[in-house]
Design a protein around this nucleic acid. Structure first.
Lengths: 204, 204, 204, 204
DNA sequence: CATGAATGAGAATTCATTCAT
DNA sequence: AATGAATGAATTCTCATTCAT
C-alpha cells in the first residue's frame, strides 16, 4: 500500500508551494505576498497553485496549519514526557526555540496570524483556525500547569493566565533571537526563561 | 505665543484623522482599512488626509507614534517614580493595562506593527520607526532593571531579555483581557504578573 | 429645482458608459465585451465605471433597462392610442422598426439577453430583470389582443401565443433589416407584417 | 466496406463529446460551459476533446452543425413531400416542434448561436457557418413559398421575409413551450401557427 | 484649504490549450 | 490514443493617490 507516484508528486507540489508561501510571507509580509511571487518562488505557474489550494486564504491557512502542526507535535511530546514539571517546562521551551531556529521564515506567518486581519470572510476563517489553535494550545498548557499545581510543584495561580505568560515570554525571546546576528546559545535563553518563571527575578 | 487659529485647526484635523485611523484599523484590520473609510470615519474627504500626511504609510506611522507616545509617557512616569523596584514595576504594569483598557482600539494597530509588513518602502519605514521605538523601550526598561540589580533588588540576569519577557508578558495579558467579555479586575492581573515575575511560579 | 451641475455630470457619465457598453457589446458580443474596452470606448478609466456601476453585471443590466425602457415607452404609446386594432398594430410595428433602426447597436444586447447565460449569479439576475421584462411585454400585448378579440376585431385565438408570434415576427424582420445593406422602406416591412398577421398568406 | 473498429470508436467519441457539449451548454450557458465540464460530462479527459476538435470553437461549431443537420433533414423531408402547401407547412411546423421537444437541451445552443458572439476569430467562424446555415434555410423555405405563390396557393408577398416570419414564429412557440411546465398538445400549437399564417388573425 | 471624481497599477482568479507520460 | 497536471494570457475588481474645481 505504498504511495502511488501521483501521490508523491502531489505531496511534493503542496509542500513546495507551502514552503514558498512561507518564504515569501517572511520576506514581504502577509499583505504584500502575492500569488505571483509565491508561484515564482515555488517554481510553478500561478495557475498551478490553484490546483492545490482553492484560493489565497486556503493556501495561507493550510500552510499555517501544516507548519504549526509540527511545532505542536514537538511541544506536546515535551509536555507529555515523564519527569518533574521543571524538566518538562525546560523541554517545552527548548523545543520551541529549536523549532523557530529551524523554521525562521515561518515566524512571520505565525506572528501575523495571531491577530485577525482582512475581509469579513478572512476573519471568519481566522476565527475558525488560528484563534482556536491558539486557544487550544493555551488550554493544553494550562491543564499541565494545573496538574503541576495539584502535585504541589507549582504554587496556585490562574493556570490559563500563567500559560499565556509562558507562551508569550518564550515567543518574545524567539523573536529577539531571530533579530540577533549572533544570538547566545539556545540553552542560555532556555535557562533564563525557566529560571525566571520558576524562581522569579527578585533577589532572595 | 498662543497657537494661531490655523494651528489649532491643523492640530484638530490631524487628531481626528489619526483617531479615525485607529478606529478603522481596529475594525477592519490593517490590510482592509482603506483611506476612504478612514476619511469617512474622520468626517473629511479622502484628499484632505493627504494634506496632512504624505501617504497611507505616513498616516499609520504618525498615528502609531502619537498613540504609543502617550503610553510611553505614562510608563516612563511610573518607571521613574521613587520607591522600591517592586512598586515601580507594579506601577508600570498598571499603567500599561490601564492605557490599553482606555485605548482598546489602538491595540490592533500596536500589535500589527510589531511585525514589519508590506512593501519594501513600508519595511524601511517600519525599521525606521516601530522597531527602534520598541528597541528603545526595551533598552530603557533594561536600564531600570540593571539599576535594580545593582541595587540588589533584582538578582543578576540579562537585563535586556528580562525586559522583553516583562513587556511581552504584560502584552499577552492585555490581549487576553481585550478578548474577554468580563475580564477580572485589573489589579488581579497586575498582581499576577508582578508576583510571577518577582517570585516565580515554583512552590516554595 | 433645476438639476445641479453634479447631477448633470453624473447623468452624462452614466449615459456615456452605457452607450459605450452597447457599442462594445454590439461589436464584440456580450461575452467578449471587456470592462477595459467599454472604458476605452467611453473615454474613461476602468475604475471610473465602478463609480457608477457596482460590477459588470449591473452595468449590463442597467444599460439594458435604460435602452429597453425607451422602446417600451414608444410601443406602449402606440398600443394605447385610439383607433381600430389594425391601426394600433401598425403603429406598434412601426415604432419597433424605427427604434431598432435608430438604435442598431442595441439590438445585439437585446438579443443576447433573451436567453439566460453565464454564472448562477447572472442567471438569477437574468430571472429578475430580462425574463420578467419580456413576460410583461408579452402579457401586455396579449391583453390588447384579448380586447380586440372581445371587440370582434380579431378572431378568437390564444392571446398569449399570438402575442409571442407577433413579437418574434417583428423581431425577425428587424434582425433581417439590420443585416441588409439597403433594406426596403420601413413601411413596406410594416405592411408585410401587418397584412400577413391580419389576413394570412393564403390566396383567397 | 464496413467501418473499421477505429472509425466506430472515433465516431462514438465524437458523438459523446458533442452530446455532452449540448447538455453542458444547456445547463450553464455558452459562456460558462467549460471544456473541463464538457469533458467530465462526456466521461473523457480534457485533452481527449482536442484529439477530435481543434479547439472550443470548432467543438461548438461542429456540434451545432451535427444537431442542426438532423433538424434540417426532417424539415426538408416535410417540405419536399407531396400534397398541397398547407399540408406541407403543417408538416414542417410539426417537425420543428417535435425536434426541439426531443432535443430540448440543444435549444440553448441553437438560440445562442443565432447572434454572433465572442472573439474576432469566432465571429469569422460564425459568419462562415451559422449565419450561412441560417440563410440557406431561409432561402430554401423562401423557394418553396415562391412555388406556392406561383401555384396560386399563397398570395404574392416577399418570399424571403415570409420565410423569416414563419421560422421565427415557430421558434418563438418552441421557446415558449420549453419554458412551460405543461405545454398544450403539440398539435394545438401547430394548428395555431398554421392557421394564423394562412388565414391571419383578423375576424372575417 | 477642502473636495471627491477620476485614474490606473496591481492583485486574485479562471480556463482554453499544451504536452510529457 | 488517452490523460490530466501545468501553464499563463486574459479578465474583473480594488484602492492609494492625484488634481481640477
Amino acid at each position: 500500500m505504498a504511495k502511488s507516484k501521483e501521490d508523491v508528486v502531489q505531496e511534493f507540489r503542496v509542500q513546495s508551494i507551502q514552503e514558498a508561501a512561507i518564504r515569501v510571507i517572511a520576506r514581504k509580509g502577509m499583505a504584500s505576498a502575492t500569488m505571483q511571487e509565491i508561484a515564482e518562488e515555488a517554481g510553478v505557474a500561478k495557475g498551478t497553485i490553484y490546483l492545490y489550494f482553492r484560493d489565497r486564504d486556503e493556501l495561507v491557512e493550510k500552510t499555517f496549519e501544516t507548519a504549526i502542526g509540527e511545532l505542536h507535535k514537538r511541544i506536546d511530546a515535551a509536555l507529555e514526557s515523564d519527569g518533574p514539571f521543571a524538566q518538562r517546562l525546560r523541554a517545552v521551551i527548548t523545543a520551541k526555540l529549536a523549532f523557530f531556529n529551524e523554521n525562521r521564515e515561518f515566524f512571520r506567518l505565525y506572528h501575523t496570524l495571531r491577530m485577525p486581519e482582512g475581509s469579513a470572510t478572512q476573519q471568519r476563517r481566522q476565527k475558525r483556525t488560528c484563534q482556536p489553535q491558539y486557544r487550544a494550545r493555551v488550554d493544553r498548557l494550562a491543564a499541565h500547569l494545573k496538574s503541576a499545581m495539584d502535585a504541589g510543584e507549582v504554587r496556585p495561580l490562574d493556570p490559563k493566565r500563567l500559560a499565556l505568560c509562558l507562551i508569550e515570554t518564550s515567543t518574545a525571546i524567539v523573536l529577539e533571537r531571530l533579530s540577533e546576528d549572533a544570538p547566545p546559545p539556545e540553552s542560555d535563553d532556555v535557562e533564563l526563561i525557566v529560571s525566571t518563571l520558576l524562581s522569579g527575578i527578585a533577589a532572595k
